[in-house]
Amino acid sequence: MPDIERKFKCSSVPYPPIISCIALLISMRAITWIGFIIWLVIRLIIYFIYGRKHSIVQNESKD
């Protein structure tokens, strides 16, 4: 409903959320970053292995 009257407007969006996220990321300890990167790499490996085995496009070419 693009024509409805808006009673509340936030004029500074998206700057406060971006600044807040950057501040939180900067304040994290190194061990947190290391854990995040390890977890990210493990999850990406699982994601790509699963995607390769279950790909519809790849499985169609094998038949």
Rank of each mutant, 00 (worst) to 15 (best):
M1V: 07
P2M: 06
D3V: 10
D3P: 01
D3G: 08
D3W: 08
I4T: 11
R6V: 09
R6I: 11
R6Y: 13
F8T: 09
K9A: 13
K9H: 15
C10R: 15
C10E: 15
V13R: 06
V13T: 11
P14F: 02
P14H: 04
Y15F: 07
Y15H: 02
P16H: 04
P16Y: 03
P17D: 00
P17Y: 00
I18Y: 01
I18L: 06
I18V: 06
I19Y: 04
I19A: 03
I19M: 02
I19G: 01
I19V: 14
S20R: 05
S20N: 07
C21I: 11
C21D: 09
C21P: 01
A23N: 13
L24N: 12
L24V: 14
L24P: 02
L24Y: 13
L24R: 14
L24E: 12
L25R: 05
S27R: 14
S27K: 13
M28S: 06
R29K: 13
R29T: 12
R29M: 06
A30W: 15
A30P: 04
I31V: 14
T32R: 04
W33S: 02
W33I: 06
W33H: 07
W33N: 02
F36I: 05
I38T: 02
W39V: 09
L40K: 05
L40A: 13
L40G: 09
V41T: 09
V41A: 07
V41D: 01
R43N: 13
I45T: 15
I45L: 14
I46T: 08
I46Q: 03
Y47F: 10
Y47K: 11
Y47H: 12
F48M: 09
F48N: 08
I49N: 03
Y50S: 14
Y50D: 12
Y50T: 11
G51M: 07
R52C: 04
K53A: 03
K53L: 11
S55Y: 07
V57P: 01
N59Y: 03
E60R: 09
E60I: 08
E60D: 01
S61D: 01
S61V: 12
K62P: 00
K62M: 03
K62D: 01
